[in-house]
């Protein structure tokens, strides 16, 4: 509750012209918002773009006076990010891909050959085990887990957003946690 009041105060100050409050607000929530986006799109570069788009939309809403103070800030931002990610996938589906003779997406190949070996090594290192386990979950379980754990949406908010009952949302979370536990045990993954 205290946290929400703090967010509300920062937003009010920002709308009144204090730019530093926006930076404070972003720094406070950036990791949760970015992790949520990254886990949805699974691509660092797309996640950076969507992160920027999300906060630019937030700014526009603040400046247009359309922000509803009653809601919680972080879940609201995460809902915007999720919608932008869905739009991104819709557009990507419509976009024709240029493939090489061996069937590889030419732009993807171009991107990889552009980055040097050191960069790709660092990227591989970052591609950590927890994300791999999350990505092994069925999409509907992964969605609830990401929105609840990283996006701070309540189970009721997730149920409303995904058009299911709260019991279904809770059930998906239970299965997600059980499946994660099974994967960790089966593969004897050490996560310390």
């Amino acid at each position: 509750m205290k946290d929400q009041i703090k967010d509300r105060a920062l937003i009010k100050q920002y709308i009144q012209g204090n730019e530093a409050c926006l930076e404070m607000l972003i720094n406070k929530h950036k990791n949760k918002v970015f992790t949520t986006i990254l886990l949805i799109v699974n691509d660092q570069y797309i996640a950076e773009d969507l992160f920027q788009e999300t906060f630019i939309k937030v700014i526009k809403t603040f400046k247009s006076g359309k922000y509803n103070e009653e809601g919680k800030f972080l879940p609201w931002v995460v809902r915007i990010a999720r919608n932008l990610a869905i739009d991104h996938f819709r557009k990507a589906k419509r976009m024709p891909t240029v493939t090489s003779q061996d069937g590889e997406d030419i732009f993807r190949t171009f991107q990889i050959s552009e980055s040097n070996r050191e960069e790709s090594y660092i990227r591989d290192q970052r591609d950590d085990t927890v994300r791999q386990i999350i990505n092994m979950l069925p999409p509907e379980q992964k969605e609830v887990l990401v929105l609840r754990h990283y996006g701070d949406l309540s189970f009721k908010e997730i149920a409303d957003l995904t058009d299911v009952s709260i019991n279904t949302a809770l059930g998906r979370m239970r299965y997600a946690l059980n499946n994660m536990r099974k994967i960790i045990t089966e593969k004897s993954i050490s996560l310390q």
């Binding site: 730019e19 926006l22 972003i26 990791n31 996640a47 992160f51 920027q52 906060f55 990283y150 536990r181």
Partner: peptide, 29 residues
């Protein structure tokens, strides 16, 4: 326990992304 595992998966955006957002805010101001 699983929540503790999930807490290991936290990523930060590139500082350039934040700079772009703040510049956009100042421009619209």
């Amino acid at each position: 326990n699983i929540k503790t595992v999930l807490n290991q998966e936290i990523h930060s955006p590139n500082p350039t992304s934040i700079k772009i957002i703040l510049e956009e805010s100042q421009r619209s101001e």
